[in-house]
Amino acid sequence: MRERYPGYDVLAKRDTPSWNDQTRRAIDARMAIPLAARRFFSDDEWPTVQAICGRIVPQPRDRARPAPVAAMIDAKLAADDRDGYRHASMPPQREAWRRGVRAIDAEAQARLGARFHALAPDAQDEVLKAAQRGEARSDAWGDMPPAEFFRARLLHDVLGAYYAHPSAWSEIGFGGPASPRGYVRMNFDRRDPWEAAEALPGREADARRDNASVR
């Protein structure tokens, strides 16, 4: 699909009044997470986790700064940062992830005869859709409902990581960090000069020019 915010990079505002020191520190740390950083998942689980993240948020291949989604989830689990609630049918998040990853691999084996990460993207999606629909062929799920795992654990954690990354913010035209400078122009169809310019069909060059001067 066409690029909605061509040339917009939320990081261009890093050294403007839109970012304060503590935000720079936090986002710098996030940007510095290597794609392969891992403390929680095992060697065996890791390719599956990465492949799952790649299908839930298929990032453009040529992206300069891909969001380290799998590594961010790994960090959350390593620290065991929880969400404040857990459905009675679900084990705690670490156990849920371990079991879920194992089960998705087992489903891939059972349905398509290969481990999840070895499948073609369409086949991977098929396995994930089955989990989303709550269909379990493997007993690796145990008493954990696949649909609940998929919705409340997997999607929740993958999206929570991806949309906390500047590359995702730039992709959707979000203003990103905003303190001390917030926004001035609040009405319909108004953007501050430090916001993303949306490309109207056929006017991509205009948007690209405006986005180059976002600061």
């Binding site: 009044p17 303190s179 400078r181 917030g182 001035v184 000069p193």
Partner: peptide, 14 residues
Amino acid sequence: NMGGFRNLSQNLLN
């Protein structure tokens, strides 16, 4: 205002 003169691009307008 928040950010004072350093945040002039906002505070001059708001």
